[in-house]
């Protein structure tokens, strides 16, 4: 039991959940998007500031479960300084990892979310900030919700 739990709630995740990084809004973001998981009530807004397609600053505010909060926090850490193209590529890797458990070797710290695939009901929590990210960089104004697709 404890092993499975430790797989899901890794120390890094618990840490980011309790002390989320970049947990504030941005004054003049280039783009932003909201993510909403109606199932749990998870709600977050992601702010991104880019220059020449490079993510200079990224932050989030909101509330939700441990997994979604930690996911948003680690997302902001992972994307600072990356191009939006790299962000898209990372989305694909994270998506694959949390749904199948297959971890790309270049995924870095985000590998802590590999255990999520064993908890199908929690995949949506982990992927929510990433959907918000895609909506933000693709300029979709509407709130993204986890109910629009199956992950």
């Amino acid at each position: 039991m404890i092993d499975e739990l430790a797989d899901l709630y890794q120390q890094v995740i618990l840490d980011h959940c309790k002390h989320p990084r970049n947990f504030h809004s941005l004054g003049n973001p280039t783009c932003s998007a909201q993510g909403h998981n109606p199932l749990c009530g998870d709600q977050l807004t992601l702010y991104i500031s880019t220059k020449d397609d490079i993510i200079l600053d990224i932050s989030f505010v909101g509330s939700g479960c441990c997994i979604s909060k930690a996911s948003a926090s680690l997302l902001t850490e992972a994307l600072k300084g990356k191009t939006t193209k790299e962000a898209r590529e990372l989305f694909d890797k994270v998506h694959k990892m949390v749904t199948t458990g297959t971890t790309d070797e270049n995924i870095g710290k985000l590998a802590v979310f590999a255990g999520v695939h064993k908890f199908p009901s929690r995949v949506k929590c982990a992927i929510l900030p990433w959907h918000a990210l895609m909506a933000a960089i693709e300029g979709k104004a509407q709130t993204v919700t986890t109910e629009n697709d199956h992950t």
Binding site: L5, C40, C65, R122
Partner: peptide, 11 residues
């Protein structure tokens, strides 16, 4: 969060 409670309880 309630969903964390429920996930752990399920374990």
């Amino acid at each position: 969060h309630a969903h964390d409670v429920v996930t752990v309880a399920d374990q």
